[in-house]
Design a protein around this nucleic acid. Sequence first.
DNA 1: CTGTTAGCGCGTTCAG
DNA 2: CTGAACGCGCTAACAG
Lengths: 331, 331
Amino acid sequence: MATIKDVSRLAGVSVATVSRVLNQNGYVHEDTEKKVLNAIRELNYIPNDVARSLTKKSAKMLALIVPDITNPFFNELARAVEKVTQLYGYATILCNSDDTPANEKQYIHALKQKYIDGFILATNTLSPEEIQQLDVPVVMLDRTISSTIPTVASDNREGARMAVQFLLNQGCRTIAHIRGPLELSIADERCQGYLDEVGQADWFQPDLIVNGDFNLHHAADAIHELLDRHPDIDGIFAGNDIMAMGALRAVQKRGVAVPDAMQIVGYDGITLGGMVYPELTTVAQPIYEMGLLAARMLIKLIEKKPLDVMHYKLDVELVQRGTTRGSANQP
Amino acid sequence: MATIKDVSRLAGVSVATVSRVLNQNGYVHEDTEKKVLNAIRELNYIPNDVARSLTKKSAKMLALIVPDITNPFFNELARAVEKVTQLYGYATILCNSDDTPANEKQYIHALKQKYIDGFILATNTLSPEEIQQLDVPVVMLDRTISSTIPTVASDNREGARMAVQFLLNQGCRTIAHIRGPLELSIADERCQGYLDEVGQADWFQPDLIVNGDFNLHHAADAIHELLDRHPDIDGIFAGNDIMAMGALRAVQKRGVAVPDAMQIVGYDGITLGGMVYPELTTVAQPIYEMGLLAARMLIKLIEKKPLDVMHYKLDVELVQRGTTRGSANQP
DNA sequence: CTGTTAGCGCGTTCAG
DNA sequence: CTGAACGCGCTAACAG
């Protein structure tokens, strides 16, 4: 591996000059620039990132920490983030915290040792105070925890309302909700949206809401119990697509026809929803756009540019497919 | 952030001594060691990874490059790899190449700038020569491309045989195979295993084999065409679970009952296979074990320790579930 | 416009 | 056993 010294020697200039053409700062004569460029090409020189990081105290690198890399939602997010960061000359590293605080902290500390420039957190394990203490730029994605930390999320409550309204319009008489983890704000908001629509209905009962922990198998189990208690349920709004798939699986196992006897709507709009049969009707978040926005915000933060918006709340869209009636995609 | 200098000052010793207790090499008096340790604790000192990497020309870091991070197979692999590397004091970074050579090369070069110590490649885009030229330790995972590069894979041919044999035992009369990409050795081997079992059967025809590119939607499309041509097919062996899910989806869409009128077996044993209904019968690879082995091999390679085995070929196991008959998990 | 020089934080001889 | 000094490869003043 050639070093900047080799280049300077071959070009007959000082290392400072080479550094200048490399970073395009300071004045440098056209002719000497050419000489340097030639030397660089000839030696196939590539600057050493580690040395550079050491002096700049920055690795041009940021991390996206997600709770579950298996969840396609986060993969789609990761793509978007990577796209932006690449554009701005940053590297992205993807970390799976498994929703465990210890893992998350481990990653964060390990990466801080490497002069990481910032984090996008799609996780929920750190308190606002802990994040503040990190002393590194942070953007929260799909989780709101503090007004002082920049955030990108979708309009969860409105999205939930849309879903439930749609189920009512499709003729559902008794709609259950399978919600996400209790501590999670997005799960609360989606539950609120459900309550907005049906909380006052004469058939409504609090135990139509069950917890599925954003987990497929928990959701499936919860649905089985729920249907044992309330055989009259003919609509399910799930707090995310994974749970909707769990519900679908449970319902199918009981031999109940979807969407004829039971309609299901999820939330997220992950591609996996199109992989099951019938395809999942869902409230689609603009996942890619959320990733783009979060990455741009973080980079602005890192480069100390002003943020025009601190908290994004993006619009969602109802995607009608096979688990509800009246769609072209229906069985 | 405290530096080694701060520590040395507080402890009243030289930086060299601090370095010695940090790395536990060289002689150092018990008492001075205590002083140093105390200073370290007091200052909450953590050595700077970047500076360390610069002198050691190693970042204690390795990368796992996978073609599709959305595929749960690779996630399970990633967990295993991370587990081992952590144990040995290495950091792991997970990269998604999207099966594009350009992406893969981009990652590799970016990481080489950061003094990465080695790669585990679960991809297929680089030629053996290109890998050799990288001048960095590499282990191939689930792909064999050259006898000189260490490899971890499962016994694909035998696994495929098991799957097809099982379908025959379950009473299938006409078994199709939906295979993976043509250039992929593992796809070839699984196809061979299929041919081993049924290539001589009187009902066999070459066009019972179709290409699904390890992709769910391609697989679904291919199955539709196939069933139009051969309505008599009553068994499908898919080259991986994702394609098996595509096949399942296609079959269900046609209103064919699984497993009564059609039985399906996949390959891989990803958890996703348990998330659809009916649950996928599959040939399970020891995914976790494969990840462990690959990581251990790579670390041995990096630390220039001898490898006792260059090419691992692991046993697989048939997991009977709902897409074949006669299982407890059947509908 | 260009070269010299002093760090960045740490590891490592090589004398003591 | 311990410390002084140099080097890893690069950037950033500061002179010229």
